[in-house]
C-alpha cells in the first residue's frame, strides 16, 4: 500500500513545484487520484490496497481500465468520481491507492 506522504511515482520536478503552488497535477502521467487536485476526465490505471476495498469499488465500477470524471477533488484529499453512470465518493486513503492518468 502506498503511504500518504509518498512521492507520486511519475511526477516530474516541474509538477512538484507547481503542486506546491497548487497549480499542477502531474499532467498525463500516472499519479494517485488523491494527488490530482483538479477535476476532469481520467483513466484508472491501477487499484492497490486492501483486497476487500478493491473488490467493493470494482463492483461500483472503479477498476483498472475504466474511464471516469472527477467531480470534486482536493490535493491529498477525498474525491468524487463519476463512473459508469454513478457518482462515487472515496476517502483520501482509497483515492491514494487508485493510480490514474489524464485523458
Amino acid at each position: 500500500m502506498l503511504r500518504k506522504r509518498e512521492k507520486p511515482i511519475s511526477c516530474c520536478f516541474v509538477d512538484t513545484v507547481k503542486r506546491c503552488l497548487n497549480r499542477s497535477h502531474c499532467n498525463n502521467l500516472i499519479a494517485p487520484l488523491s494527488k490530482r487536485g483538479q477535476t476532469g476526465r481520467i483513466k484508472i490505471c491501477k487499484v492497490t490496497g486492501d483486497r476487500a476495498t478493491c473488490g467493493r469499488i470494482a463492483a461500483m465500477g472503479v477498476y483498472p481500465g475504466i474511464e471516469a470524471d472527477i467531480i470534486c477533488s482536493g490535493e491529498g484529499s477525498r474525491c468524487i468520481l463519476r463512473v459508469n453512470g454513478g457518482t462515487v465518493s472515496l476517502d483520501a486513503d482509497v483515492s491514494q491507492n487508485i493510480l490514474v492518468t489524464n485523458l
Binding site: R51, C54, G55, A58, A59, Y63, P64, G65
Partner: peptide, 14 residues
C-alpha cells in the same frame, strides 16, 4: 495483469 480476480469479474460483468 496486476489485478485481483474480482476486478476481472467486475470488468467482464460491466
Amino acid at each position: 495483469l496486476d489485478v485481483y480476480p474480482e476486478a476481472i469479474i467486475a470488468d467482464h460483468r460491466y
